[in-house]
C-alpha cells in the first residue's frame, strides 16, 4: 500500500512495524520468563506433579471434540436445507437463528444452571457441551449457508437425474464441495469451545470434570500467590493452541476472518 522509494523510508517502515508488533509479543515473553523464574523448569514439574493436568486436558478434548461433532453435523445439514431445499416458513426459521446469534452467554446462565441442577447434570460435561454447541450453531449455519448457496444447483440435478436420492446427492456431490467452509466451522468451534470459560466455571465444580481454562484458578486456589506455578500452567495450556495455529495458519486465519464477516 505504501510506495517505498528510498532506503530510509524502507527502514523507517520496518522499524514502525517492529514497534507495533513488539507489544504483542511482550506478554507472551513475560509469561514464559515468569514461568521459569526462581526454580526454572521445576515450576513445570510442580504443575505436572499435581496430577490434574492430564485430567483437565482430557476433559477439554472431550468438550471440544463433542462440540465440533455436534456443530459440524447440525451446520452441514441445516446449511444444505436452508440453501438448497424447499422449507415452509424458511424465513421465520432463519430469523430465529439470526436472533440467537446475538444472545450473550450470560443470558443463559441462570436457566441452564437451574435446569442442569434439576436434571442432575451439574458437574457433567454434557451441561457445557450442549450450550456451547447451541451458541455456535447459528453463526456457523449463517456462514455455511452462503457457501452452500454457491454450489451449482445444476450439479445436484445431474445427480438426481442419474438416480441418486437427496441424501446421496448431499453426501456424494454437495459435501465434498464444501470442504473449505467445513474447515472454518471446525476451527471456529475448536477455538470457542477450547477457550470457553464462563460455562465451564459455572457448571463444573468437581476437579475431575474441569477443563484447561480453569487450570490457572486451580493453582490460584492451591498455592496462594504462587505466580510461577500459575504462569507455568498458562504456558502449558497455551502451547497446544499455538502449535495448532502455527501448523494450520491459513485455515485459522480464514476460519476466523470468515467468522467475523457476518
Amino acid at each position: 500500500m505504501f510506495e517505498i522509494r528510498t532506503l530510509r523510508s524502507r527502514i523507517g517502515l520496518q522499524v514502525l512495524a517492529t514497534l507495533i508488533a513488539i507489544p504483542y509479543l511482550l506478554p507472551l515473553l513475560a509469561m514464559v520468563q515468569g514461568s521459569l523464574a526462581g526454580r526454572g523448569f521445576d515450576n513445570y514439574v510442580k504443575v505436572f506433579d499435581t496430577g490434574v493436568v492430564p485430567t483437565y486436558f482430557r476433559n477439554s478434548i472431550i468438550v471440544a471434540g463433542c462440540a465440533i461433532v455436534i456443530v459440524y453435523a447440525c451446520t452441514m445439514l441445516a446449511a444444505f436445507g436452508f440453501a438448497k431445499l424447499r422449507i415452509r416458513g424458511k424465513e421465520v426459521w432463519f430469523w430465529m437463528l439470526l436472533i440467537a446469534l446475538t444472545v450473550p452467554e450470560a443470558v443463559l446462565l441462570t436457566p441452564l444452571f437451574v435446569t442442569a441442577s434439576t436434571f442432575d447434570l451439574y458437574n457433567e460435561l454434557v451441561a457445557v457441551i450442549l450450550p456451547l454447541a447451541a451458541l455456535q450453531v447459528p453463526f456457523t449455519v449463517l456462514l455455511a449457508r452462503s457457501f452452500f448457496a454457491g454450489v451449482p444447483t445444476e450439479l445436484m440435478e445431474a445427480g438426481r437425474i442419474d438416480g441418486a436420492n437427496v441424501v446421496r446427492v448431499f453426501w456424494h456431490i454437495v459435501l465434498p464441495l464444501t470442504r473449505p467452509i467445513a474447515g472454518a466451522v471446525v476451527i471456529l468451534t475448536l477455538i470457542n469451545s477450547w477457550n470457553a470459560y464462563l460455562l465451564p466455571m459455572l457448571m463444573l465444580n468437581d476437579p475431575n470434570k474441569q477443563v484447561v481454562t480453569l487450570l490457572p484458578q486451580y493453582f490460584l486456589g492451591q498455592y496462594t500467590n504462587d505466580q510461577t506455578g500459575i504462569l507455568a500452567a498458562a504456558v502449558i495450556t497455551s502451547i497446544p493452541m499455538i502449535l495448532a495455529y502455527l501448523l494450520l495458519q491459513r485455515t485459522f486465519e480464514r476460519g476466523l476472518s470468515a467468522g467475523a464477516l457476518k
Partner: peptide, 27 residues
C-alpha cells in the same frame, strides 16, 4: 424432486430452540 428441507434443518433448530430459546423463555 428433493422432498421438504425441514428434516435437514431440524437438528440445528432443536438444539437452538432447546438451549437458547428455552433459556430466554425461562429467564
Amino acid at each position: 424432486l428433493y422432498g421438504s428441507g425441514l428434516p435437514w434443518i431440524l437438528p440445528a433448530l432443536v438444539l437452538v430452540i432447546g438451549m437458547i430459546y428455552f433459556s430466554i423463555g425461562y429467564t
